[in-house]
């Protein structure tokens, strides 16, 4: 899951909230995009930049970047790999798994024994199922004896996928 917000962000002041709403579909492709956003909202370029910097510092904006369409680029296979990792080492190892270039959405989550012994989740991407399985072996090697069990779940069907959107101020 990524990142664009749903729901009312009550922790944002009204001006920040308008900036979020104005930019959640993307930055305008013009030479001075922050000045352009300012024109939409009646703010100066400096105000827009300062507020976005502050939101980035608070973690409201994680980053400003391009998101490649990994499917279009040939990464058509993906699986949710899950790992039962020794709690004492899970945080440090999760950091290393999350840094692998083919991993997205890497999280520590609670186990639900007995059905679910896994605490580390990492989405693996590749151009084929075989490639994803090979990457899974690489992750297993990285985790080594800290990992007691693992599995990988492939999606068989998308049952619902909503475009998450922040509602405009109400």
């Amino acid at each position: 899951m990524n990142e664009v917000a749903d729901r009312v962000p009550e922790t944002l002041d009204p001006v920040d909230r308008r900036i979020v709403t104005a930019t959640q579909a993307g930055l305008p492709l013009v030479p001075a995009p922050y000045a352009e956003i300012g024109r939409w909202l009646g703010l100066t370029e400096a105000e827009v930049i300062a507020r976005m910097e502050a939101m980035q510092a608070r973690g409201v904006i994680r980053r400003i970047a391009v998101a490649p369409n990994h499917y279009a680029l040939g990464m058509t296979a993906n699986g949710m790999s899950v790992w039962d990792v020794d709690d004492a080492r899970a945080s440090a190892l999760g950091q290393r798994v999350g840094a692998l270039p083919y991993v997205t959405h890497c999280y520590l989550r609670p186990r639900a024994r007995p059905m679910w012994p896994y605490n580390l989740f990492a989405m693996l991407h590749g151009s084929t199922r075989e490639e994803v399985e090979a990457k899974r072996q690489d992750v297993a090697a990285l985790l080594g004896d800290a990992c007691a069990a693992s599995d990988i779940l492939y999606s068989t069907r998308i049952l619902k996928k909503t475009g998450l959107r922040l509602r405009d101020g109400d």
């Binding site: 664009v4 749903d6 009312v8 009550e10 922790t11 959640q24 579909a25 998101a67 490649p68 279009a72």
Partner: peptide, 29 residues
């Protein structure tokens, strides 16, 4: 700018801009 517009046009990118942390804005997931 022209290349980013084209990359979006052909579907090579899904988004270009700020990525928000919904939890930091008060939502829960």
């Amino acid at each position: 700018i022209a290349r980013l517009a084209r990359l979006r046009e052909v579907g090579a990118t899904t988004r270009f801009g700020p990525f928000f942390d919904a939890a930091a804005m008060g939502g829960a997931f």
